[in-house]
Simulated assay, not measured.
Amino acid sequence: MEDCLFCKIAAGDIPSKKLYEDEQVVAFYDIAPQAKVHFLVIPKRHIPSAAALTEEDGALLGHVFAVIAKLAREQGLDNGYRVISNVGEDAGQTVKHLHFHVLGGEKLPV
């Protein structure tokens, strides 16, 4: 999508502090961290939100969560971490591209 911020980051048109990239996903640090460790994992393919996922996206989601687990280990999040995906404006989704926030590195509020 031409005007999508995360599509531009995935394409390399907008710089980010990348943690990981492969043919399907990109992971980068959040520009306004809400925890000691806060990064995002996004698919390169534009998907507006989790509400737009279908069963055909199962392999992609499995890959996303495998990448999240790998990066969490690399970031030392051995005591735990939180994975969040906001869906829609009422939930606080500000970028209409499926993304997963990974937060950790400290005791998170319940």
Rank of each mutant, 00 (worst) to 15 (best):
E2W: 06
D3P: 02
D3T: 13
C4E: 01
L5Y: 08
L5M: 10
C7H: 09
C7I: 00
I9H: 08
I9S: 10
A10C: 08
A11W: 06
G12S: 04
D13A: 13
I14L: 12
P15F: 08
P15G: 03
S16M: 11
K17S: 14
K18V: 15
K18E: 15
K18C: 05
L19P: 05
Y20W: 11
E21M: 03
E21L: 09
D22F: 05
D22E: 04
E23I: 07
E23Y: 03
Q24H: 14
V25W: 06
V26M: 01
A27G: 06
A27P: 07
F28H: 01
F28I: 04
D30K: 02
I31A: 14
A32E: 11
P33N: 03
P33F: 00
A35R: 01
V37K: 02
L40H: 06
L40C: 02
L40I: 00
L40P: 07
V41R: 05
I42S: 02
P43Q: 01
P43G: 12
R45N: 10
H46M: 05
H46K: 06
A50N: 07
A50D: 08
A50T: 12
A51S: 14
A51K: 15
A51Q: 15
A52E: 14
L53E: 11
L53P: 10
T54C: 09
E56S: 15
E56A: 15
E56R: 11
A59Q: 09
A59C: 01
A59D: 13
L60N: 13
L60S: 13
L61Y: 14
G62S: 14
H63K: 13
H63A: 00
H63F: 07
F65W: 10
F65P: 11
A66W: 11
V67K: 00
V67G: 05
V67R: 01
K70N: 12
K70H: 13
K70T: 14
L71K: 03
A72S: 14
A72I: 06
R73H: 11
Q75G: 01
G76R: 13
D78N: 12
D78Q: 07
G80S: 01
R82N: 13
R82Y: 11
I84Q: 06
S85P: 09
S85I: 07
N86Q: 12
E89S: 12
A91L: 01
G92T: 08
G92Y: 08
G92S: 08
G92F: 05
Q93G: 10
Q93V: 11
T94D: 06
K96D: 08
L98K: 06
L98W: 04
L98H: 05
H99M: 12
H99V: 11
F100C: 03
H101T: 00
H101K: 05
H101F: 00
L103M: 15
G104L: 04
G105A: 07
G105H: 10
E106G: 12
E106R: 09
L108D: 05
L108Q: 04
P109Q: 10
V110E: 11
V110S: 14
